[in-house]
């Protein structure tokens, strides 16, 4: 059952990612990316990371991507035009990427295939209580620093988007 779920959602994730790369219109790309994120959330649940799965749904697909879709609709510029300037990237980039993927897969398989396989239910330390405990004890300083970062980001976004201030 684990394997079937994994294969299904891994395939959905890869298909959505490829679709995101191929679609001409940003809205289609954004929706495909949401598909990737939702299937990754399912995989997180399979890995025992319940809280991260929920955070993935709430933060990524519920807030960040809504922002993306909102901006795309606000600008409403239509589909992307083909470019003539990306010739080098196309000719050189594609084979290099395939090589990157092949090498990465080879290294990963060599290094980790002997490790114990993932079994659903074997790891249960990913609930909200455990994550929250770690976050507010051992990782308290990074947590506070991140909150300051977000404050700065809010101020920056407000300053940038507010045209009348100049």
């Amino acid at each position: 059952m684990d394997l079937v779920l994994f294969l299904t959602f891994a395939l959905i994730a890869v298909a959505c990612a490829i679709n995101m790369s191929l679609q001409r219109h940003p809205v289609s790309s954004a929706l495909s990316l949401i598909g990737v994120m939702v299937s990754l959330a399912v995989l997180y649940v399979l890995l025992g990371a319940e809280f991260i799965a929920a955070a993935q749904l709430v933060v990524y697909s519920g807030a960040i991507m809504v922002l993306f879709v909102f901006v795309i609709m606000l600008l409403n510029t239509g589909a992307e035009k083909m470019s003539k300037k990306a010739g080098t990237a196309h000719f050189l980039g594609f084979p290099l990427l395939v090589i990157l993927l092949a090498v990465a897969s080879w290294v990963i398989t060599n290094a980790t295939s002997a490790m114990k396989p993932v079994k659903f239910g074997a790891f249960t330390g990913g609930g909200p209580r455990e994550v929250g405990w770690e976050l507010f004890t051992r990782y308290l300083l990074p947590f506070e620093v991140t909150s300051i970062l977000i404050l700065i980001a809010i101020a920056g976004a407000y300053r940038l988007a507010n045209k009348e201030m100049d």
């Binding site: 059952m1 394997l3 079937v4 994994f6 995989l43 396989p117 993932v118």
Partner: peptide
Amino acid sequence: LTIPLPGYL
């Protein structure tokens, strides 16, 4: 059936 670790990676 379990999922081998390289699958995810």
